[in-house]
């Protein structure tokens, strides 16, 4: 009975995190983006500086009609948002926020592989949406999504593999247990490659060609309305949380901090994740969208060689210190 309660409690906590953190990131994005552009952002909803704007948005989305285009592949069209969203919920289960068994949803032996595998499944949702919408713009968006995924998953995997090599384990808490502060400069190239490739996989600006609104309307999500559209948006923000959390755990030492690591480790994790989320927003505001061919070139000619070099470096240092 106690075990069941424990599992239920963990699932509940992860679910609550899954529902609230993306909203917090979304609200932060509204505000930070506005101030970076000399604006104020939402000010009305909820009274104090528009804190309830995203809740109001959610209510609006829920009220809207759920339209399925006439020529669409009905079932796949309706299934796609769930396929896009659920993997991120699963990934959150595996991310440890503090030391010990109590601070992670589920300890997995091959955590790195689990996380990357499940994140790659999420992109299937966009592909299904792009194909099933019976819309040329959606199809183009789906194509771009697929091309982008193929190009950027490789550097992401290689960068993660570098950390796994350094730690000698593929379990996420195991990597954190092995972490030392000098891993930071040692793995910095891998960290940057991982973060950038992750941004591309989430289709965040400046890598948002699959949804480029000035070219193909909204890519694979063009035909979506109401709650299903909101689910896609939620998936994007949940993806930001997952990416930032993963980068924190893999490269920035998770719960390790200069001081107060005992008992307050989860604060460090959350702080690092929040800073990274801010960086995601910051990059979005600052840089214009890359062109599709620039995107492919960037990955194959820069990120992949960089990540391979990082693996070589990791291997050399690993052998030397043994």
């Amino acid at each position: 009975m106690n075990g069941v309660l424990d599992v239920a409690l963990r699932l509940l906590v992860v679910f609550v995190v899954f529902l609230t953190f993306p909203l917090i990131v979304g609200q932060t994005e509204h505000k930070v983006m506005a101030h970076m552009q000399g604006r104020l952002g939402p000010m009305y909803a909820g009274g104090f500086h528009g804190w309830a704007q995203l809740i109001a948005d959610g209510v609006k989305f829920a009220q809207k009609e759920d339209v399925v285009p006439n020529g669409a592949d009905r079932r796949i069209f309706q299934l796609a948002p769930a396929v896009a969203l659920l993997p991120y919920l699963l990934v959150l289960l595996a991310i440890p926020i503090g030391p010990g068994e109590g601070a992670v949803g589920q300890v997995l032996d091959a955590g790195v592989f689990f996380v990357l595998a499940v994140m790659a499944v999420g992109v299937l949702g966009s592909l299904m949406a792009g194909w099933a919408s019976a819309n040329k713009f959606s199809l183009l968006g789906g194509l771009r999504t697929a091309a982008q995924l193929l190009a950027y998953e490789l550097p992401m995997l290689l960068a993660a593999a570098s950390v796994a090599m350094a730690a000698g384990t593929v379990s996420l808490p195991g990597i954190l247990d092995a972490f030392e502060w000098w891993w930071l400069p040692w793995q910095i190239v891998g960290a940057i490659v991982f973060f950038v490739a992750g941004l591309a996989e989430l289709q965040r600006p400046p890598f948002d060609m699959p949804v480029a609104d000035s070219e193909i309307i909204f890519g694979a999500y063009t035909e979506y309305t109401g709650l299903r559209f909101a689910l896609f948006l939620l998936a994007e923000y949940a993806g930001i949380i997952v990416l930032c959390g993963l980068t924190t755990v893999l490269f920035l030492g998770g719960w390790h901090g200069p001081w107060g690591a005992d008992g307050l480790g989860w604060v460090w994790t959350l702080l690092k994740t929040a800073i990274l989320a801010f960086v995601v927003i910051w990059l979005r505001v600052t840089y214009p969208r890359l062109r599709e061919d620039q995107l492919q070139k960037f990955s194959w000619t820069l990120l992949v060689p960089l990540s391979l070099a990082q693996i070589a470096l990791t291997g050399i240092v690993k052998v030397v210190i043994q």
């Binding site: 101030h35 970076m36 000399g38 604006r39 000010m43 910051w282 600052t286």
Partner: peptide, 21 residues
């Protein structure tokens, strides 16, 4: 150039906004 762009947006964030309420 990339760093300069980041600096511009960060500096703008710390400045007073021009929005008319």
């Amino acid at each position: 150039g990339l760093a300069k762009g980041l600096a511009v947006t960060l500096r703008t964030m710390t400045k007073k906004t021009v929005t008319a309420q």
